[in-house]
């Protein structure tokens, strides 16, 4: 199911993963790495809580924070030197964009979206939100610079949650059942075409080396590959722990325990036994994580392992280094 096209050559990268797996951080890191390689990455969030605001702009201190641009419906440069852009698709603006596209005249579009009854209908009716957001993605993908080159490369979409990815991919199919013809049908068809074009679009899975997230990722992978044409371009495993002890120390644990138990020094015995217990606990947890990584690697996808980071409040992250590591990890997994 994987295509051996390097990740950054695609136009549209969709990132999915259960909440709390560090998906937004991976998206931001890969965008940084793309910028470093001279591309024009655009990060797109879909109207949910703005993680990119925190990641790129929130961490600037004091006066910098006040001057930081707000990530909204239009792309803004999120680094002082430009190079990485981000936007957060807003339902209302996306709806307006869609209506303008359909009726061509802004004044009429404003009349429609300004109609209270229609506005309520659009907000409440099923699927409107998803359709107009997908439409916005399609518009962004088509934008060009003056020389005809794509305006954004790549577009990185931070999908909300696992279910969201399936829903987005399912949407065109579901809608085809409901909509036989009419203007929406054209949109649905072009969305299907965009999402299933393996040259342009790929899905990236982000997960953690823990039993539950791994199980969900495997289930998602099978569901995706059974139901959809979409390409899966990579797997990112966050928070992979490093070995807590060197091999010699691990090998010596039993000996330490035996010696401690044989010792007459009660205080020392207690301390060493406590140390050994902790060490065994940490080694077991490390081995468990490795076993989970291996389960994921069995899928044969290009896979990057990202290091465990105990990020505490106020600590800044070297996104570019993380992004480089993610990309080289994928390439290594590709070999």
């Amino acid at each position: 199911m994987t295509d051996r096209i390097s990740l950054l050559r695609r136009r549209l990268l969709l990132f999915t993963g259960k909440g709390g797996v560090g998906k937004s951080t991976v998206v931001a890191a890969i965008a940084e790495a793309a910028a470093r390689r001279g591309q024009r990455p655009l990060i797109v969030e879909l109207g949910h809580r703005a993680s990119m605001q925190d990641i790129f702009l929130g961490r600037a201190g004091g006066s910098g924070r006040r001057r930081a641009p707000k990530i909204g419906h239009e792309p803004v440069a999120v680094r002082p030197d430009g190079g990485v852009w981000a936007m957060n698709i807003d339902l209302e603006s996306a709806l307006f964009d869609y209506v303008v596209e359909q009726v061509k005249v802004k004044r009429i579009a404003r009349m429609i979206t300004g109609n209270r009854t229609l506005d309520r209908l659009f907000r409440a009716a099923p699927a409107v939100r998803e359709i107009v957001m997908l439409n916005k993605l399609r518009q962004l993908e088509r934008q060009q610079q003056a020389d005809g080159a794509p305006r954004w490369s790549p577009i990185l979409v931070d999908l909300d949650a696992t279910g969201h990815a399936l829903m987005f991919l399912e949407m065109p199919r579901m809608l085809r059942k409901v909509i036989a013809h009419g203007p929406l049908r054209g949109l649905v068809d072009s969305l299907t075409e965009l999402f299933t074009d393996r040259q342009r679009t790929t899905l990236c899975l982000v997960t953690l080396p823990l039993e539950v997230p791994v199980q969900e990722t495997l289930e998602l992978y099978h569901e995706l590959t059974e139901l959809h044409e979409v390409s899966i371009g990579g797997m990112f495993i966050n928070q992979v722990p490093a070995a807590p002890l060197d091999d010699a120390a691990i090998a010596a644990l039993d000996e330490l325990e035996t010696r401690a138990r044989a010792s007459d020094d009660v205080a020392a015995q207690r301390e060493v036994l406590a140390d050994v217990t902790l060490a065994r606990r940490m080694v077991a947890s490390y081995r468990h994580a490795r076993a989970q990584v291996e389960r994921l690697r069995e899928l044969g996808l290009p896979t990057a392992e990202l290091p465990r980071m105990y990020l505490r409040s106020g600590e800044a992250l070297d996104l570019e280094a993380l992004g480089e590591r993610a990309l080289t990890g994928l390439e290594g997994g590709d070999a």
Binding site: G182, P183, L184
Partner: peptide, 8 residues
């Protein structure tokens, strides 16, 4: 009808 199609 123009925006979403008459059938819908």
């Amino acid at each position: 009808g123009r925006i979403v199609g008459e059938q819908l």
